[in-house]
Write a protein that binds this DNA or RNA. Sequence first.
RNA 1: GGGCGAGUGGCGGAACGGCAGACGCGCCGGCUUUAGGAGCCGGUGUCGCAAGACGUGCGAGUUCGAAUCUCGCCUCGCCCACCA
Length: 827
Amino acid sequence: MMAGPRRERFDPASYEAKWRERWEADELYVTRDDDPRPKRYVLTMYPYPSGDLHVGHWYAATGPDIVARMFRMRGNNVMFPMGFDSFGLPAENAAIERNIHPATWTDANIERMRGQFKTMGAMFDWTREVIVSDPSYYRWTQWLFLKLYEAGLVYKAMGAVDWCPKDKVVLAREQVEGADRRCWRCGTPVDKRDLEQWFFRITNYSDELLDFSGLDYPEPIKLMQTNWIGRSEGAEIDFPTEVDDIEPIRVFTTRPDTVFGATFMVLAPEHPLVSVLTSEERRADVEAYVAAARRETEIERMSTEREKTGVAIGAHAINPMTQERIPIFIADYVLPGYGTGAIMAVPAHDERDYEFATKHDLPIRYVVAPASGELPEGAAFVEHTDDEVLVDSGEFTGMPAAEAIGAITKQLTEQGLGQPAVTYRQRDWVAGRQRYWGAPIPIVYCDEHGAQPVPEDQLPVVLPTDVDFAPTGVSPLQSHAGFLKADCPKCGGPARRETDTMDTFVDSSWYFLRYCSPGNDEAAWDPEQVAAWMPMDLYTGGAEHGVMHLLYFRFFVKALRDLGLVSFDEPTRKLRNQGQILGTDHNRMSKSRGNVQAPDELVSRYGSDTVRAFLMFIGPWDQGGPWSPSGIDGIHRWLARVWGVGQPDGGGVPAGDAEGDELARALRRATHTTIDAVTEDYEDLHFNTAISKLMELTNAIIREREAGMAGGKAYAEAIDTLLLLLAPVAPHIAEELWERRGHAYSIHQQPWPVADPALAAADTIELPVQVDGKLRDRLVVTPSTPSAEIERMALESEHVQRYLAGRAPLRVIQVPGRLVNVVTPRD
RNA sequence: GGGCGAGUGGCGGAACGGCAGACGCGCCGGCUUUAGGAGCCGGUGUCGCAAGACGUGCGAGUUCGAAUCUCGCCUCGCCCACCA
């Protein structure tokens, strides 16, 4: 270098913005529908416009950007859009706290975040941007709501709903977190409230949502959704009561094989039969218990150490198999919303029933026993294995338990006392919110005709801007006379507008469809475009949406399919979750914790490419972890080295054609093996290992340069390939060096390199030699060296000889191309 | 309490059942520099002068061979949590 020309300093600031402007001016990232190349749709979950992009946003977006960029270089027409999830509580809270209108606050945040996004140099197609709080978008959210309403998939009903007392908002069941039941947004313990609510009938699709066949989803997400839906198979069984003219009590059980052991019954305190069945002498106690259960919040229920409380109601039922009279209780451990809200209690085979029976001195009768006949003492026998048989169960005694489930269910069915049944834990989606900043639910109430959908040609129902945001617990829309006043679509008479707005998850349940034909005034989407782009090829986002957004958007697509609005079953073929970047305190980044890390300073100091590459390098993308910028210097140094070797002067070393040379062959081998390795890593979203392989190639190039090989064909090929493979991760430096090397603009429109297997193949391999599995020596052989020859060489090795100590080997194991293991005789 | 996942150098992390620690950070030494920084070269799992021995949370097992598979335990993380 001493004599070489002075090289230009690595200064990303001198070119990064220049290229972004040029790409934008050239519409390099604008996706055209009529582009004939195969379509690929890559999407990252759009952000809430909280105000500033933090490193987590960069982390989440850079991964799919890399994949999208590679897809495009491979000859695809790639759509990679971005938008904003701009309805929701924080905007309304800002309005309350700072007296800024939610729309103003939101728009300003979007403006700022869009600008920050642009400094990433990602290939977002901003011409397709979707902002869900814009009337041109929520008009169609309302339209879709009405479509589902007409199809009976939306209904309004009274329901005990979770209520956040701080945000003063109804929560969907999925939005309540933790054992102590806190609000997912603010962490406040939630209450229960009885309110009339809008629901989406997601449970119509429970079974279909359990079917993941053909979907490439992470296992944890599939498991989460499966558990959330919570399908249980069993039977419903009717237990007649002694009271005349009253329907029998119907229970759900997954263990019909234990019905002979049902020695009492328990109803949820809310069960409709409680008041009719309760005897006069028990009425006072029962009513007190019911009232107490009603008052109890979920947290209080948790904090009572789960003691099984309950009271007898002074009535009896008949066990349909044993004909025994069994007492009926109410207890809050039986939930009103699951199964039938009533159980047959089998204390011998259910831990909860056992606890209750012990406490109330009720009979415990074992009716299933293991083959050994050994039953547990002082506990329920709940194991459910193959070798169990029924005992003390009338004609079924001796039958294997697994078989008895079907046999007993069959007999009950024939006798009209029961039937096979399936229940689910999943409930319908509470989709309405008593808040202002959301899409208004397009319904009006007429005294004459009740709830009426707003006619399509009157959409959107626009949110009024002149409202009072004082936090009252009711929607500000309730006090807006102009908004409330409406005409009945049916009779034209006076009507009152619905003031509930939609859960923001409704907006995000279809935004990916809107991207396919944004700005369309005629329809929510152009069916032809949706058919061409959907389903998505890759969808990425946080796993925290596992049972919320990621269930809802699947439900929506299935519902829309059944309405004939789309013709596919699932929103995305492939889903991947990035890990979460935590604050330096190892907590989730949040403004209230003050641990939010902004990338801006790092970007201005090191440039976007360095920040992107650093974020992708810190670890497996799906893992995340606490934020620390230590190590970013290493990435910056690497890109500076790339900058050095990528200069057209070959790094200042005079050229000499090294074709055919041993070193040149080694470099070509490195180049071509790197192509395959990096391509595979990008496909699997293993960005950290991809970058380490690019670093290795860079180091190989530098070694070559130092050996005086610069300037040959192999050398130029290595550098060009390095730049092409680097382009998705560090788009600016790749473009700058590509141009400097005299290649045609733009590197991002070049074909993806393809490895030549002949060049990638090694001509010598180093074979580890083990003795009894421990490394003792190495052999250098060619791939064609016969195994007998390898064995001979291994046994001749003096290191191996030492361990053999004159004995003949017991056997010699060879894994072709991998290793040799010499096994010595034992003892 | 149930389910799932993870425990590898000082740190982030690599490793189809086959060379443990790739790549990078940090650190140590050297060159360069008036100095600092940057850059470059070399070293860096532990013990040992070395030969070598020992090493992937702990303990067993399967195997010619285990970070990887099986069983038990410990720790951490996530999800669910009275779901009949």
